[in-house]
Amino acid sequence: MALSKEHLLKVYEDMLLIRRFEEEVEVYAKNGTIPGFIHLSIGQEAAQAGVVDVLKDTDYKFPDHRGHGAIVLSSKPEERKRCMSEIFAKATGINGGRGGSMHVHDLSVRNMGFNGIQGSTVVTALGTAFNSVYRKNDDVTVVFMGDGTLGEGTCHESLNMSATWKLPLVYVLINNQYAISTHYTEAHPQKQLSTWGLGYEVPSMTIDGNDIEEVIEVTQQAVDRARRGEGPTLIEMMSYRWQGHFSGDPAAYRPDGELEAWKEKDPLKLAKEKLQEKHGVSDAEIQAISDRVEVEIAEYVKFSLESPVPKPEDAVKYVYTDREVEGR
């Protein structure tokens, strides 16, 4: 399905925003401003932007550990800088600095956040999907997961239960080839991981996760099916992470030339070519998008750098709902 020019322009801008977001995060992770470790999703923009584009604010979203893009795009534009300041461990962060890169959630748009234990959200998502059935509404749940995460037993349990109960759940399996150093073909016997759904009679397909039009089309079908109460879908989106597993991983396990070959399939490059060749979008229009994104990102970075750090004493808040834990 070809997108309209306006639609393609919109998602191109979304993708550029999250690409630039990640590039800035990388700069500040490398220079030590951002503590801890960071999993960057550069190269996987189409899978994130395309899926979020299809969803409503009331749909439940479970990004994964490589999910900054889905997180940012799920948030309202005015809240996006707080996604970045969370990663910077700042008090203005969307979770007050408690969580950081792996734990950015925003309940106002039903971004339910990630759990540092791989495979955990895959079963949590059963609960939000169940809620839609129980309350008879049409909210859909989307859970992002990686090729490696599929190894967790919870993935089987989740597919089995969602299929049996026809839960409105879409599994977005971003196959970026690797789980840390382990290629997916060394951890699973199948050539395509979408076959995992078939044993549970879950409609499953493998698509080009770098082609935003294909991502949107297939996700839309899966979401529509879920909204109609027909049950879950598993979409394997083939993609590639350009960086190592975490920022700073030299990724020595990749064969020579692999990254360069995937860079040829850059989702942004593909979308830009379509815009220019099929829709006659001018260089000036493309430049205007870049300029807007730069202004936006510069604001996030400035906000993140200037925000205060959280009060250490606040660490004892929110351990229980109805009482505080003793501080120092």
Partner: peptide, 19 residues
């Protein structure tokens, strides 16, 4: 440590871990 989860922000984590 204090009886809390381990928070992310450095100042918070240092506050929680034993001194």
């Amino acid at each position: 440590s204090l009886d809390t989860p381990v928070p992310f922000a450095p100042g918070m984590e240092d506050y929680v871990l034993p001194h």
